[in-house]
């Protein structure tokens, strides 16, 4: 059985607009799956629906089985023990996930206490380990408030919190979109390494084909809430079958090619400083 099994998931707003329509996909234990889509594709709504975090105004139908537990329609008290040990989310903007008035160390300690029951010196050590795992200098960061950290450091803290309860599935929703490109690269390396080391499953959600292709083995392409194509990342990018995916890949390829074919110094006025 899959760790995450989404079958016929539909999400509607109160006034009837369909945000996700009849979506099915699965993530096996230890597997890396990508959800690709542009704005309005329903990818973030999907990530919230699979963890039971949908806004009260949104209505989910269909089935989401997380480690065998039905998420759709489940009351919050049933979901709470699953969030953390079963699945955790990292969002695009770490500031929304962090409490601005609480030191980072305490924010990491909270889920560790809740899920692993650690206290006192053991807890302090576990917090230090959690920070170390995301390559942050423990003591200084633990005493800091979120606003004292850079965007990349904050996202590392958010990852440390998400991993505190040793989840079997990590959901990363555009985790690097707000970051500088070199920081993005570091965070992707970190996620890559952590997912492999802990044998976690990864559901990686992004609009960026290049980023998804680096992080996932299989992908599902979403267009306006409908899955139009699924397959291995390599196949989908090399030979997209659906018209929407073809358009998406062609656009991304055009930009990618520009990196190789940008004009060199010969035809630019005032250039000519070849080494």
């Amino acid at each position: 059985m899959s760790l995450l099994e989404v079958a016929g998931l539909s999400v509607r707003t109160r006034d009837g607009a369909l945000l996700v329509h009849d979506l099915s996909f699965s993530v096996d234990a230890g597997e890396r799956v990508g959800l690709i889509g542009e704005s309005g594709s329903g990818k973030s709504v999907t990530s919230l629906a699979v963890t039971g975090l949908l806004d009260a105004g949104l209505d989910a139908r269909g089935s989401v089985l997380l480690d065998g537990h039905q998420i759709v329609g489940a009351p919050d008290r049933m979901l709470r023990p699953l969030r953390g040990p079963c699945a955790s989310i990292v969002f695009q903007e770490p500031l929304t996930a962090l409490d601005p008035l609480m030191r980072v160390g305490r924010q990491i300690a909270e889920p560790i206490t809740r899920h692993r029951g650690l206290r006192g010196r053991d807890l302090t050590r576990a917090v230090a380990e959690a920070l170390d795992a995301v390559a942050l200098p423990g003591e200084r960061i633990a005493r800091s408030y979120p606003h004292e950290l850079s965007g990349g450091q904050r996202q590392r803290v958010a990852i440390a919190i998400a991993l505190a309860a040793h989840p079997r599935l990590l959901i990363a929703d555009e985790p690097t979109t707000a970051l500088d490109v070199t920081v993005q690269n570091e965070i992707l390396d970190l996620l890559d390494h952590l997912v492999a080391e802990r044998d976690m499953a990864l559901l990686f959600i992004s609009h960026d084909l290049a980023v998804v292709s680096r992080m996932a083995q299989r992908v599902t392409v979403l267009e306006k809430g409908v899955a139009v194509e699924s397959g291995s990342v390599g196949d989908v990018i090399a030979a997209p079958a659906h018209a929407y995916t073809q358009r998406l890949v062609a656009s991304a390829r055009l930009l990618d090619d520009a990196l190789d074919s940008a004009p060199s110094s010969s035809n630019s006025p005032g250039g000519g400083d070849d080494a």
Binding site: V181, T182, N185, G234, A238, A252, D260, A262, P263, S264
Partner: peptide
């Protein structure tokens, strides 16, 4: 020239920027 910087950046910083660009397979 943009192409020259992308294909042969001369400073460490530009090199790290170029290396960090996510590419399609």
């Amino acid at each position: 020239a943009t192409g020259s910087i992308l294909s042969s950046p001369t400073t460490d910083y530009a090199r790290s920027l170029v290396a960090a660009i996510p590419r399609l397979p």
